[in-house]
Structure formats: structure tokens, C-alpha cells
Amino acid sequence: MSYRWRLLAPLMIAACLASPGPAQGAAPPKPASTIAAAALVEPAELAHELGSTSGPRPLLVHVGFRSLYVQGHIPGSVYAGPTSQDAGLQLLREKLAKTPKDQSIVIYCGCCPWTRCPNVAAAYDQLRTLGFTHVRVLHVDQDFGANWADKGYPVATGE
């Protein structure tokens, strides 16, 4: 072992051990920033769409964590998450198994700031892989509270 490695190896091991959390060893989730801008829908735009009496209503799918869904979600949403985990992706596949592939779908999470959300990109990729052609993602910049509830848009609580 070279002198440099003898110095670096203990530091690298210490850094790995110091990193807390269950994410240890797991691949980091795909960031929401990888979703094409054309696939995003802003909260104001979606709220307007949901409030409109003309046109079909999109299927709303909450792909985040159940505890946050219980605290608040858009009325009429289907819960299918968390899609950062295999079990959540499986639930998403099950919930949308009978949905027509050309159905307009809006997925959302809002657990944390957009750049940190571990769920939406995985859900978006999964639905595209399954062949859904009209999938949009609600762009929640800060979190569901700040960008949806605080704006006065409709919120439902509980299961």
C-alpha cells in the first residue's frame, strides 16, 4: 500500500462510518431536476385546472410518504408511494394497473424542497416505462404546505 493510501484509507472509512441514516450504501434517489420542464405543472396552473368545470379532471397520484399524505393532500388523490422505495413503486403499478395509458395523470409529493425530493423522478420514470403518455409532475418548489396549502388551494386530510 502506498504512503498516500495509508493516509487516505482511514479517513475514507471514518467518513463512511460517520454518515448517518439508512441511506448508507443505497444508491441516491434520482433527483427531481432530471424531469423535463415540459412535464412540469405549476401549483397555480393545476389549481385552476381542478377548479375548472370544463375539460376532464386529471388523475392525481400522491407518490410521497404516507405520513405526509395523512397530514394533507389534494382532494380526490390516489395514494401510491413512497416511490423512492421498491414497495412504493409496486403500489404505484398496482394502483394504476387498470388505468388507460392515455389518461391524464398528475403525480406529486411535496415532502421536502424540490431538489431533495426522492420520490417524483422515480414515479415519473416508472409511469413512462409503463407506457403512460400524459404524465405531468406538480412542481413543488419548497413543500406541499408552502406551495399548495398556504396558497389556499384545496387540501384534504386523513386516509
Partner: peptide, 17 residues
């Protein structure tokens, strides 16, 4: 561990931290 009523007491937990 959080539950619905506990979060509601603090005005709802609609995002973290």
C-alpha cells in the same frame, strides 16, 4: 413516532424539515 393527531396539534406537517 408521528401520527395524524400529533401533527395536527402543530398545525399540520405538510413538509420537512
Amino acid at each position: 413516532l408521528a401520527d395524524g393527531p400529533l401533527g395536527a396539534q402543530f398545525g399540520g406537517v405538510l413538509g420537512l424539515p
